[in-house]
């Protein structure tokens, strides 16, 4: 694998750039098709004030032909310039800079907790009797079906409004992170547990497991050394889906828990039709997606020894 790493990275980089370019292009033309940008900047109250339109159009370069605007946008993005927010009239990079960390924090802790919950559920229930499995299946389906924001309100009502264990808003360190993390992690765990248990049960039926057990290996030892690795594979494959869930869920969960973050910024920007910010968030999401996919591909050989063999071949 290591021999081909540079080639692998180069390929990844090229497809990544292609995906990003696609995201930029689609966002740009979707936004211009959605209506006059000047209306968005001025809002309905001022959109018709005489003289203001022309000045604003000139200031934001919206009076130029669309292809020119598009090329200009590509050029400035290439230099890392995301433009200025219509609403806050400050650089988008500054606006988003302070919001990335809280979202990343939430998404990572939700991914970890979700994986942990799924692992626990998998290990406890795999290969058990019918009743246990039916019970957990029902649980998992419920967990998957529950929308994160609804779960968030439920958690808030119970653990904040009634029991008062956790704060209802704000980033009070760890205690402020618990409920939003759970709201995101539980639906995630539901899905991951299902696919992981399926894989685990499949693997535990393989001859190599039987022979290992016959040699005196405990189930726990087997789990840690061999079978869980197999179970992790489909979870890794789903990492793109997981990411999508986390980003989409974070938007809603951040609103319910009044947390700062990209979700809050995005909702706010969409409401005010602040297109430079919306585009930047879309591009950022695409970037995260590309990076995560690349990481997942690099993780396969680490988890699964067989893949190392084939990639060397």
């Amino acid at each position: 694998m290591y021999a081909s790493l540079p080639r692998f990275l180069l390929r990844r980089l090229l497809t990544g750039i292609l995906v990003l370019w696609g995201a930029v292009t689609v966002t740009f033309f979707a936004v211009s098709a959605a209506g006059d940008q000047v209306d968005a900047i001025l809002g309905p109250q001022a959109a018709n004030l005489p003289g203001l339109r022309e000045r604003v159009a000139a200031e934001y370069g919206l009076d130029r032909p669309l292809p020119v605007q598009y090329l200009d946008r590509l050029a400035s993005l290439a230099t890392g310039d995301f433009g200025r927010s219509y609403q806050r009239s400050q650089p988008v990079t500054r606006l988003l800079g302070s919001q990335i960390l809280p979202t990343l924090q939430l998404a990572l802790s939700a991914a970890l907790v979700g994986l942990l919950l799924a692992l626990i559920a998998t290990v406890i229930t795999a290969g058990r009797g019918r009743i246990v499995r039916t019970g957990t299946s029902v649980f998992e389906v419920l967990a998957v079906a529950v929308p994160p924001f609804w779960l968030g309100i439920l958690l808030l009502s119970l653990f904040s409004f009634n029991l008062r264990w956790f704060p209802a808003f704000g980033s009070h360190g760890i205690s402020g992170l618990v409920l939003p993390t759970l709201a995101l992690a539980i639906p995630l765990a539901g899905v991951l547990a299902q696919v992981m248990r399926q894989e685990l049960e499949l693997v535990e039926g393989r001859p190599f497991v039987l022979s290992a057990r016959a040699r005196g290996q405990s189930r726990l030892g087997l789990l840690l050394r061999h079978t869980l690795r197999h179970a992790l594979l489909p979870a890794t494959t789903m990492s793109a889906w997981v990411l999508g869930t986390l980003v989409g869920g974070a938007v809603l969960v951040e609103k319910v828990f009044s947390r700062p973050g990209l979700g809050t910024v995005l909702v706010n920007a969409v409401q005010h039709r602040d297109t430079p910010v919306v585009s930047a968030v879309v591009i950022l999401a695409a970037l995260i997606f590309v990076v995560a996919n690349a990481l997942a591909d690099m993780l396969y050989p680490v988890i699964d020894a067989r893949l190392r063999e084939t990639s060397r071949a």
Partner: peptide, 18 residues
């Protein structure tokens, strides 16, 4: 001044004394 967009969260935070 706390910005709480969600109506349910705002009312709940008030009734629970937060």
């Amino acid at each position: 001044v706390q910005f709480l967009a969600d109506d349910a969260a705002r009312v709940g935070a008030l009734t629970s004394g937060q």
